[in-house]
Design a protein around this nucleic acid. Structure first.
Lengths: 200, 200, 200, 200
DNA sequence: AATGAATGAGGCTTCATTCAT
DNA sequence: GATGAATGAAGCCTCATTCAT
């Protein structure tokens, strides 16, 4: 008959997106186990039945939350890595970009690194495969720089990748919006640390 | 009447230590929430009453598990930092040492970074205070090197500390005993990366 | 617009029959409660709306499944009972026939005896009335033989009927197609046991 | 301090027995699926936690309910079969006895034949093995009579066993306490029908 | 010092059915 | 004739913790 009424819970967005947004916020505030399905559906203004109509289980929500960010980051990494520039510039751009997008989606990424182990076996496998692909691409960039002599060969590329992504995962533990540094400033500093460590 | 019988679970160690060891192993294998109090007491060969006799709650176990490692690391950091050597050497030694002790207690540290948020508010506050003290000492070393001109001032000391400890937290996500690198080799590489990044 | 496309699930049979066939198979495999409406409609290649268009509820399906067989058996019993032959021959034929038709529709009958209690009160009443009518007709045959002296009066007719139909209900618990006996052989044996028990 | 108060729900019996009795009554009245765990614990005057302290799951209750009767019947069958008497007398006694004990535990047996398929796979396997053992013993009696020529060889022993136990399973569908026949009378009639069918 | 039965609250998930389109 | 999103109630089970002994 008429347009659906817009209450505080029922904004115009489709139900699945409302659920995902509510879950993201609650997981970030209270942790995955600390958040009940009941809380999620109340925050989204729907019923449990609706949630299970769109998502197979609670850990499906987790999977979706992180999958969105990971796909975004993979696309951006591919773009930076394939650009036409010296490898040092490309690596610096990619290393800084993952920091910026992680901070811009800090809820999603923090949730995920803390709660990944709650995924079922097959979903966990899938996510790990996607992360591996991401890391491989990043590592390939470093190896390219090693071959050209632009980077120091003192440290295995694997270890360098884990060094950098350690700091990216760690962002959720200390970065607070409104702090003294903007996301871009943090990103530039961390990328700089990486590149300085790689200087021959 | 007589000495207690020694069963397979009752290996002679005192009950609290048996409980702590069982909890550590189970938390590492299955996560904190994935492990029930029942499983812990069965693995330790005692009953629930015994656990609650020694520990006030389940998160007390978590607290103890990590507290042990944190106290150890703090002692060692203090020793390295107070040594009589150029600041670069002292920082390198401290940075490598925390990697080695983290790997040697990988179960404990992995559990902790993943499950910290399950601590009650007062225990969480206490642990955070201890960690802050640890970080402050580490940062002081870096600032010392900045003042002496031994390290580059390009990056704020805070950020450098987080960069390094990001990689330390991350160890549980990739390091596997029996891999190609010994704990000491990993430690040397990571300390080297830190020092290289700090070169002027 | 045009004729509906023929998918693998859409084999040309009308929708209600497809639903009934799917329900019968699933109920037999997984039980009535073990089968969800969603599974039925997926197996039939339609949607829930379609099911509820043709059937008022899930237990309507059960009712239809068994109603078909019961009507068939009633017709056949009436035919055998009304035939022109000695009562012993008529009873033997009827007793054997219900075994054959039960085996030929073993899914339907097994489901039914196991799930009857899921029918709503009014449907249950209706089915029980139909079954009673069936039993009465069967009992009348036995009583006819008792009056003529052809059968022994050692046992009340009621009990004899229940004795035989006990074995018929039980068929689903042990008869397997492809076993050593054909349906007709099983039927002949069971009818023979009944008639032997009735010998004076 | 004092003896526990005896309310209507809390009689003197131990909790597991109270639970089993409540479950048996409710399963018989309303079916297995028709009975919620909540109803059972309320009827037994305890909480859900207590139920799951003693029984691993809802179908564990079912398993216990039937296991009790089956063990009883197996013992009695063994006793009758091993007695010192002609095989015809022993078979008649065993055939009548299983009818009496089935009627005396009609709730348990009715529940079971109707709900067996709700048992998990391993429990189902175990129960089937116990039933098979029971049937084997019964069949051995019949085969003994076939060898001595006391029984007719017209029908395979297997089929005769299923014929008789069909009528036993069926008892729950029609026998009502307080009807015209006592359990013993029903038992005598059914055993008589079996023996008459086996006359050469 | 230690037991283990019992609590009670809460967790996730399933499902038959309805209804606007 | 048919769709499928959404409901809402109920279901089974888990678990940290307590307490009388």
């Amino acid at each position: 008959m008429t347009a659906p009424p817009a209450t505080s819970a029922d904004d115009g967005r489709p139900v699945p997106q409302r659920l995902l947004a509510a879950a993201t916020r609650l997981f970030a505030d209270q942790g995955y186990d600390g958040t009940s399905v009941q809380e999620i559906v109340e925050a989204a203004g729907v019923t449990k039945g609706a949630l299970y109509h769109y998502f197979g289980s609670k850990d499906d929500l987790l999977h979706e939350v992180y999958g969105r960010v990971l796909r975004l980051q993979q696309e951006r990494l591919d773009a930076f890595a394939d650009a036409d520039a010296p490898v040092g510039q490309r690596l610096r751009a990619a290393a800084a970009d993952v920091v910026v997008t992680t901070i811009e989606n800090l809820d999603d990424t923090t949730i995920f690194f803390r709660s990944m182990h709650h995924l079922g076996p097959e979903k966990l496998k899938q996510v790990r495969a996607e992360r591996r692909r991401y890391h491989e691409r990043f590592r390939a960039l470093i190896e390219e720089g090693l071959r050209t002599g632009e980077f120091s060969t003192a440290t295995p590329a694997d270890l360098v990748v884990d060094y950098h992504f350690g700091s990216v995962h760690h962002l959720g533990n200390w970065y607070r919006p409104g702090g003294p540094l903007t996301p871009q400033q943090v990103a530039d500093h961390l990328a700089d640390l990486l590149l300085r460590a790689l200087r021959p």
